[in-house]
Design a protein around this nucleic acid. Structure first.
Lengths: 104, 104
DNA sequence: AAAATAGGCAACCAAATGGTTGCATGTCAA
DNA sequence: TTGACATGCAACCATTTGGTTGCCTATTTT
């Protein structure tokens, strides 16, 4: 879980995930296109995403294909964010109560 | 948005949010209790959470009260995670299709 | 077989991060 | 008013991070 949060902390890595979300199964070179970064920097980012299980790779000849794995992202949503959604609802209903009280 | 992801990247900070979720409005000293960290380290973490708008503070005499703001967390869920949930569904239905195909 | 293409490895670097210690300030209680 | 308590500020430190360059290997293509 911690690795996933760490991996998502970087904007470049999130944009790599976005790219894979737009088109899955891209090669390293394809993922490098248009980025203001060397290929090696991208390689490192992809390694971190792979480590966090957010991306899986297949070798096909001399190319390495990258696939998005949305499961950990989903888990963050389920196991972590959901918990705080409830707090938000409590805060909202509290606010509502206060506002209604004001009109009394 | 980037600040929120960065703030959530650290396990100590996430556990501070957990503590506030369990009991809102704690003082700095209360939040320090039981942690293997100096008060100053906690102060820094709280500053980062505040900067990311995940925590708001009120001064009450010599005490500083900390309140959880769940809105940015909710936004991460809405604006970011939701997008990838769809990809997961696509992946699942693809898998289902493959499995069904196998039985033909 | 030679050249071009796709990617991997390792050393290096500057800046950011997470933590510390020491001291200062503001506020409450005796 | 004096001491205790809650917090703030600043300098410092080691490690991690995000990036680079240079070179090597493997697979195609011509």
């Amino acid at each position: 879980m911690d690795e996933v949060f760490k991996a998502l902390a970087d904007a470049s890595r999130r944009s790599l995930l976005d790219r894979l979300h737009a088109r899955n199964g891209q090669t390293l070179n394809e993922l490098c296109e248009g980025l203001a970064m060397t290929r090696q920097a991208v390689t490192k980012h992809l390694a971190i995403l792979e480590q966090a299980n957010l991306v899986s790779t297949f070798k096909h000849g001399r190319e390495k294909l990258h696939y998005l794995n949305p499961v950990p992202i989903h888990q963050i949503g389920e196991r972590w964010i959901r918990k705080f959604e409830r707090a938000k609802l409590v805060a909202l209903s509290e606010l509502k109560r206060q506002l209604e009280k004001r009109d009394e």
